[in-house]
């Protein structure tokens, strides 16, 4: 897997850009969703399928599928977990942490000494605070981070949340995660 050292440039191909704009809000819930999209753009259904496959292969689409809302499913706690690593280890550790299933973001950012020694930023989601803290320990074990200085910053009040204004489609992973204030609480139930 390649490391993305930066954001991608804006979408160059105008048909790709129109296609992404048309699907970013979600596929229609009808039996031939790609045909509906194709009709709206005056394309063939087969071309829509080929282009979406190519955009996925190239990484412009990170994944294509069901996008769930963590909080509505009971994942109410999130923490920004930051790590102070020797510069030469940031890439390797960043990739290992970023590949763990419960880690939803992994970014290198500069340290700002003396106030801020941390240079790797990750986001961890769990059902509650205890679950998040257990996952932090699991991450340490799995990535050899037991001795590495880190801090766990749980989210508190949300003062503002608005999608970043990108020209083409918005992204769905807010850089600071989601605040606890919207959490629905125990309204999820499982049945057999």
């Amino acid at each position: 897997m390649d490391m993305k050292t930066n954001d991608s440039p804006a979408i160059a191909d105008p048909i790709d850009a129109a296609l992404l704009a048309a699907v970013q809000g979600g596929l229609p819930l009808s039996p031939r969703p790609y045909a509906v999209i194709a009709d709206a753009l005056d394309l063939e259904e087969s071309e829509v399928l080929v282009r979406l496959a190519r955009l996925t292969d190239s990484g412009t689409i990170k994944r294509f599928g069901v996008v769930v809302r963590h909080q509505e499913l009971g994942y109410c706690a999130n923490a920004m977990v930051v790590w102070a690593l020797p510069e030469e280890r940031v890439g390797e550790v960043g990739r290992r942490l970023g590949s763990l299933p419960f880690v939803t973001l992994s970014y290198r950012r500069p340290r700002r000494l003396p106030d801020w020694p941390y240079n790797l930023f990750t986001m961890i989601h769990g059902r509650d605070r205890a679950a998040v803290l257990a996952l932090v320990e699991e991450a340490k074990d799995r990535c050899g981070l037991q001795g590495v200085e880190c801090a766990v910053l749980f989210s508190g009040q949300r003062f503002k949340q608005r999608g970043a204004r990108y020209v083409a489609p918005s992204v769905d992973t807010p850089p600071l995660g989601v605040a606890g204030s919207r959490c629905p609480g125990p309204r999820l139930a499982l049945s057999r």
């Binding site: 699907v23 412009t60 689409i61 996008v67 769930v68 509505e72 992204v171 629905p184």
Partner: peptide, 24 residues
Amino acid sequence: LSSAGAVSRVGPVLRPQRVGASTL
């Protein structure tokens, strides 16, 4: 599942587009 809020959509998650500058 969509009307209950559990599913946001069935669709793409896009890599952020670089337009201008941003920071945390």
